[in-house]
Amino acid sequence: QVALSRTQVCGILREELFQGDAFHQSDTHIFIIMGASGDLAKKKIYPTIWWLFRDGLLPENTFIVGYARSRLTVADIRKQSEPFFKATPEEKLKLEDFFARNSYVAGQYDDAASYQRLNSHMNALHLGSQANRLFYLALPPTVYEAVTKNIHESCMSQIGWNRIIVEKPFGRDLQSSDRLSNHISSLFREDQIYRIDHYLGKEMVQNLMVLRFANRIFGPIWNRDNIACVILTFKEPFGTEGRGGYFDEFGIIRDVMQNHLLQMLCLVAMEKPASTNSDDVRDEKVKVLKCISEVQANNVVLGQYVGNPDGEGEATKGYLDDPTVPRGSTTATFAAVVLYVENERWDGVPFILRCGKALNERKAEVRLQFHDVAGDIFHQQCKRNELVIRVQPNEAVYTKMMTKKPGMFFNPEESELDLTYGNRYKNVKLPDAYERLILDVFCGSQMHFVRSDELREAWRIFTPLLHQIELEKPKPIPYIYGSRGPTEADELMKRVGFQYEGTYKWVNPHKL
């Protein structure tokens, strides 16, 4: 086992960053958080920038500027975001240094004079007029057009580079997404736009490419001749908990499936790229999406959770019991969808996408189930092999396979070949997804960000279904809070070829 401390991990990262040409360590950078008073800024962006600063992973002359409508001070920003920093008493001095680099400007999102004030403020910072500028839009999409237009007109660096990070949702359907994309691309070049999907920053999602293309053993079996089906799962054990009003506007397909799960599907299904260059990788992902037809209604199961009468606390409440959810809402909190990649490698292999709230566990994984062994000599005792990439929690890679049961006879039983990170790298604290992705933006690497043509294809696949749901308002199937979801989803999976045995229990190697 390799035991690495946080300091050692960050030392390795620093070495990698400083050796590259793309990370300008000594240049002045300004990180501007648009929507600095909001939840995302408070819980994710400010803490992430602090962790990067604490670990010495930001360029040395980096300033952080918050911008929002609320009249706040840096002290206010500190008060609301610091509880999420997880700072230790030993880091007190470092924390003071961090907040000394912070400033805040209040202004409207659609007022040109406010942006001119913001620009004057940035120019007044040390070497601010020639600094590289990175704008993070932690804002609702309704203000994107006004904000990007004003940034472009008043706040661009004339000497350094300018980059803009856009948070999902990128529209509600193909038409609104196209409108937003066309607007942003009329102001910024594609190499300046970073559409963030934080799932692409997760260690195991990034590991998929290495697993596939750096190991000879997987190449020959990664196709329709050997793989019976692919299941991509995202499960949350909690409901909307008072935030249903926002969720109800989008629903589970827009929230998770059309982005996170579809991105994971691309990494499983794509061909080997010409290189690890950002556009070479994204070219292959677009090719996969172009091979997927629009979702067919007979390959869809929609569910909505109801309270568990035997549960406790939140578990007793259904989705419609959330006071922020519109009365009688038919918005799905669970969806199972089957897609097919219609190309030579994957023809006929079902890709089953499942996601839901208020389920029995927290889990995100990719599961490849292989065909049955031909010419069975073990009297149907063999179960199908599976390769599982567990994204969260407890990152893991393992192969479910058959071995001989101890004893006199040739009785096979299920076991696993474990390729888990935790076994080799004991207690290594890896940077989280937002840390990686923000560092990628500083480096100018777009590999783990969504390109406009990729986004367009993703919406093309799901828009007809979303429009049909909005028009017909089908009643989702009720499922109990804390269950596996509607049984109809299991029946759909069985119908397209997935075999669920229920006889195997994964042993978490992190707890051995």
Rank of each mutant, 00 (worst) to 15 (best):
V256W: 14
M257D: 00
Q258H: 11
Q258E: 06
Q258Y: 13
H260R: 15
L261S: 02
L262N: 01
L262A: 09
L265K: 01
L267R: 03
L267K: 04
V268W: 01
M270G: 04
P273K: 00
A274E: 14
N277H: 11
S278H: 14
D279N: 05
D280F: 06
D280P: 06
R282M: 03
E284D: 04
L289S: 02
C291K: 09
S293Y: 05
S293P: 07
S293E: 05
E294Q: 11
V295E: 01
V295I: 09
V295G: 07
N299I: 03
G303T: 01
Q304N: 01
Y305M: 01
V306L: 08
P309K: 07
G311Q: 13
E312D: 07
E312C: 09
E312P: 15
G318R: 03
Y319I: 01
L320W: 11
L320C: 13
D321H: 05
D321M: 04
P323G: 12
V325N: 05
P326E: 08
R327P: 15
A332C: 14
A332V: 04
T333I: 01
A335Q: 01
V341C: 06
E344V: 07
R345H: 10
G348M: 02
P350H: 01
P350A: 01
P350T: 00
F351S: 00
I352M: 06
L353S: 00
R354H: 12
C355V: 06
G356C: 01
A358I: 02
L359K: 01
N360L: 02
K363S: 15
A364I: 09
Q369S: 06
Q369W: 05
D372I: 03
A374M: 14
F378N: 02
Q381E: 14
K383Y: 14
K383G: 15
R384V: 02
R384Q: 14
E386V: 03
E386L: 02
E386D: 06
L387W: 04
V388M: 14
R390M: 13
Q392F: 09
P393A: 06
P393V: 01
A396C: 14
V397K: 03
T399S: 09
T399P: 03
T399W: 14
M401I: 04
M401A: 09
T403D: 05
G407N: 05
F409S: 12
F410H: 03
E414Y: 15
E416N: 12
L417Y: 14
D418N: 09
T420H: 10
Y421L: 12
N423K: 07
N423A: 15
R424T: 09
Y425V: 13
N427T: 14
V428Q: 11
K429G: 15
Y434N: 13
Y434E: 15
E435C: 13
I438K: 00
C443Q: 03
G444P: 00
Q446C: 05
H448G: 15
V450C: 15
R451W: 02
S452V: 12
E454D: 03
L455R: 02
R456K: 13
R456G: 09
E457R: 02
E457D: 06
T463N: 15
P464I: 03
P464A: 05
L466R: 01
H467G: 10
I469A: 07
I469M: 14
L471N: 08
K473M: 06
P476N: 03
I480Y: 13
I480P: 07
G482I: 00
R484Y: 10
P486N: 00
P486C: 05
P486K: 02
E488Q: 05
D490K: 13
M493H: 07
R495S: 10
G497E: 14
G497A: 11
F498M: 11
Y500T: 14
T503R: 13
T503I: 14
K505I: 07
W506S: 05
P509R: 05
H510A: 09
K511S: 07
K511W: 11
